[in-house]
Design a protein around this nucleic acid. Structure first.
Lengths: 358, 358
DNA sequence: ATGAAAGCGCTAACAT
DNA sequence: ATGTTAGCGCTTTCAT
């Protein structure tokens, strides 16, 4: 009740106020150990009166747990990561953990510094969407020191033994491609920002390695697989390569349209690329879905607003974050998970931009 | 170099390894106090060898500063707040601070718990976009305890003496309204989710109080002011009231369109309301900008993608966050700011959806 | 310049 | 059930 300017009220203050020993006060305040109903009451009331607020720092020092997890991601302002972060914080909170965020902008040095800094702050565990780099030493250092790390949606070969929570990118692309095939399309173009050469993709070790590919590459792979499965011939010319920016995608699709490659469907493997591709299609006044069926990536707001609305592959972002947190928390509690990796399915949301070819 | 499984290497370990006393090691490790070049080297090398990582928790305990600031916001997944958070983390980082995020979902209880929890973790300061409520006791409690708090974009009357960093909402609306007036529009409709009655708005104490109004109300006020300033009559019928959701805005605009109110321009005061209004306009096949000029709020991606592209009011989100952080950090350093409140200007981005009335 | 010792606020044996 | 004591890892007087 009293609002005094307390630099901070400690257990000792409470103990004194309650007329008991420090440890008695500590016992009731922390809820462990035994205390008589009498002291219980006196301490509680004293704490209340003084406005006692436990010092989590001190607690963390002795308990060895800060009840904080670190999220190290490329960019919170990016819709994918902000939604994921939300899932992460939600799951963390319900377990009594807070999360501290750090943006890397896909810079390896920044990532390394962030990890180091958060490790100094004694984060109990890390969820990291790592920068693509050969030797993520900062991460391995953490792991060696016994700090739990869960990878988010990306894994480098050097991190092969770390648990990963990701979207099933291969499946996502199969979903899109098969949907188009079932509609009757045969000449299906794909816009990809995968840096890998397509030829490398068709002779892959069936499983484990796949998760060490970039998401974009996995998506390209899903397309190739779906085509193969359904006996549709893969035409290299229909693999439109783009950088990771809308302008580049726009140019790539524009060029493809000009080239008269005769494709009847276009599948975009990424949000930003979808943007550029959509612009190119609009520029060329192509009729969608009459001339070309269009599938975008990520259920962005605008895809429901344009006419025709756009069929998209939706990633379970929130769930991705909460799964990562849950996975990490389990590790903190030394619970062995059923599977090391978690691979969440994407969904196809059919809208107006897809139809059978004319 | 050595990668041993160190539960954690402490100053003592380093001191022993370097063959000096604990305090000597601590001195060079913390960079304060004096040490001979010799010990300096020996300690540094020992630390390096052992892979010493300072324990920020312990440091915080004794120094009284955790170098952490808390961001308590409605929802990170919301584009406005995620962009703001990015600005916040950027500014914080460059000052050596990390930020820990908490979502309130505009729930007063959740907010109170978050604040309490983060206070227990001894965040050095708080940036909070408070839930609208009469008695934000959790916040005042912090302030009473001497913890720096900066308000983000919202302020309740009860929090009148706290520093505020916000967008100039009144100015934002004046910008939009005046732009339309200058184009020649006289019948300008506004879509608002402000709960306040319009009549209350025209007799306001000129300044201070304004910042205690909700953003939506301030935006409505700017519209009224611009109209007044330019001698354009305010027509109550053109104030379209909506709830804070797209469906409601869609219905409101739809009804207005049906009612034949004869407005030639429509200004939407909020991102979500812009969405609904846009849908209504599309539903009714109104020609934009020929029949109606349209101004949206927030520079959302889709506003550049639809045809015609949409003229919008753009809020300086990133800057808002960095300004809030900077303001808070100044307070932490006991620097008196020039002004208590910071009011960042919004900008108008002219695109295709606005034109002179026919 | 260096070491010894106290203490930040808390928990956890250990006695009593 | 309660009190005494040690100690988490660090910084900071205070001597030397």
């Amino acid at each position: 009740m009293v609002s005094r300017r307390n630099q901070s009220v400690t257990v000792i203050d409470v103990a004194r106020e309650a007329g008991v020993s420090k440890s008695s006060a500590a016992r009731v305040l922390s809820g462990r150990g035994s205390a008589s109903p009498a002291t219980q009451r006196r301490v509680t009331e004293a704490a209340q009166r003084l406005g006692y607020r436990p010092n989590a720092l001190a607690r963390a020092m002795v308990s060895g747990s800060s009840h904080t997890i670190a999220a190290v991601i490329p960019d919170v302002a990016n819709a994918f990561f902000s939604a994921t972060l939300r899932g992460l914080t939600d799951a963390a909170r319900s377990a009594g953990f807070e999360v501290i965020v750090s943006n890397t902008d896909n810079d390896a040095d920044v990532e390394a510094r962030s990890l180091e800094l958060l490790a100094e702050k004694r984060a109990d565990g890390f969820v990291v969407a790592p920068v693509f780099q050969d030797a993520p030493e900062a991460i391995t250092r953490l792991v060696e020191d016994g700090t739990p790390v869960v990878l988010l949606d990306r894994r480098m070969p050097a991190l092969a033994d770390l648990p990963l929570v990701s979207v099933d990118h291969v499946g996502a692309s199969r979903l899109a491609t098969e949907y188009l095939i079932e509609l009757g399309h045969r000449r299906i173009a794909i816009v990809t920002e995968a840096p890998d050469r397509l030829t490398d993709l068709r002779e892959l070790p069936p499983d484990a390695e796949i998760s060490s590919l970039r998401p974009s590459t996995q998506r390209l792979l899903g397309y190739v697989q779906a085509l193969d499965d359904h006996g549709v011939e893969l035409d290299q010319d229909l693999v439109l390569e783009s950088d990771y920016d809308a302008g580049s995608a726009r140019a790539a699709v524009s060029a493809a349209l000009d080239a008269g490659l005769g494709f009847t469907a276009l599948y975009c493997t990424d949000a930003i690329v979808t943007l550029g591709a959509y612009n190119a299609v609009a520029d060329h006044q192509v009729a969608v879905p009459d001339d070309i069926s269009f599938i975008g990536f990520d259920d962005q707001e605008w895809t429901t607003l344009v006419r025709p609305s756009i069929t998209v592959i939706d990633q379970p972002r929130h769930e991705l974050g909460s799964a990562a947190a849950t996975r990490l928390l389990a590790q903190l509690r030394d619970i062995d998970p059923d599977e090391r990796d978690l691979r969440l399915p994407a969904h196809l949301i059919p809208r107006e931009s897809t139809a059978p070819p004319r």
